[in-house]
Amino acid sequence: MDILDEIARARRELSGDRRKHLVLSRRYDAEIEDVWQACTDAERLARWFLPVSGDLKVGGKYQLEGNAGGEILQCEPPELLRVTWLFGADPGFSEVEVRLSADGDGTLLELSHTADVPEEMWSQFGPGATGVGWDLALLGLGVHLSGSAPIDENTFHETEEGRAFITASSRAWGEAHQAAGGAPDEVAAAVARTTAFYAPE
């Protein structure tokens, strides 16, 4: 797997004013049922993303280990999963939606994250704050679906390959930010801060 090619395989879009809407989509060389199971089966999810606990059905609550939790709002196998995506007792609006569709002998995955983002966080990091994290997650999914050994999330950012991926992801989200109207100097500063956060020297 060419790690940097994974960046080019994805399409990134940004819209919204106070409520930000990020979209990340890419194709996987796997059948839709396989991709769906990888995204919704707790045992498989733990292999490429994070361990998950809770009442994993519509209306139930879930919690990703050391990360977000929330409520399962919609689940329509093998095409649609929609959940709230909150950290701690954060009462703000944040939802993630994953849509799958068959694409020839593969699957198109579209991940949308819509959230109210504090202005101070947005001005500091822009869409890369969450966008790079989602790029890393979908890279992990691609590695998992290919049958390769999983990425070590604790050390990936320290490797040459990992740093190259994070830098490219941060720049790609900067391009999406600028395409959505972000000022070039502000976008460049946010890209630099995001890259330093995910891959510190």
Rank of each mutant, 00 (worst) to 15 (best):
M1W: 06
D2Y: 11
I7Q: 02
I7G: 00
A8Q: 11
R12I: 12
R12G: 09
E13K: 00
G16W: 10
R18T: 15
H21R: 13
L22N: 08
L22I: 15
Y28H: 06
Y28L: 07
D29F: 10
E31F: 14
I32Y: 09
E33N: 05
V35N: 01
W36R: 03
Q37R: 13
Q37K: 11
D41I: 01
E43A: 12
L45C: 10
L45I: 11
A46S: 14
R47D: 10
W48S: 04
W48G: 00
F49K: 00
L50G: 08
P51N: 02
V52N: 00
S53R: 07
G54I: 05
D55P: 00
D55C: 00
D55E: 13
K57H: 13
K57M: 05
G59F: 12
K61N: 05
K61I: 12
Y62W: 10
L64Q: 05
G66H: 01
A68R: 03
A68I: 10
G69P: 08
G70M: 07
E71V: 14
E71C: 11
Q74R: 14
C75S: 15
E76M: 09
E79M: 07
L81G: 01
V83Q: 08
W85K: 01
F87Y: 08
G88K: 11
A89L: 09
P91M: 06
G92H: 13
S94G: 08
S94T: 09
V96P: 02
E97I: 04
E97G: 02
E97F: 02
E97Q: 09
V98W: 06
S101W: 02
S101N: 07
S101P: 03
G104S: 12
G104E: 14
L108K: 09
L109F: 04
T114A: 14
A115G: 03
D116F: 12
D116T: 13
D116L: 15
V117A: 02
V117Q: 05
E119M: 10
E120D: 14
M121Q: 14
W122T: 07
Q124T: 14
F125L: 14
G126L: 05
G126E: 12
G126C: 10
G131I: 14
A137V: 15
L138V: 12
L139S: 03
L141V: 04
G142C: 03
H144W: 14
G147K: 01
A149Y: 12
P150Q: 11
I151V: 15
D152A: 06
H157W: 11
E160A: 02
F165E: 13
I166F: 01
T167C: 02
A168W: 02
S169Q: 01
R171W: 06
A172K: 01
G174Y: 04
E175R: 06
A176D: 07
H177G: 03
H177Y: 13
A180G: 04
A180R: 04
G181D: 10
G182Y: 07
P184E: 07
D185F: 11
A188C: 03
A188Q: 02
A188H: 01
A189F: 04
A189H: 06
A190G: 04
V191I: 15
V191R: 03
V191W: 06
R193I: 14
R193S: 13
T194L: 09
T195K: 09
A199T: 00
A199S: 04
A199H: 03
P200M: 07
E201D: 09
E201Q: 05
E201A: 02
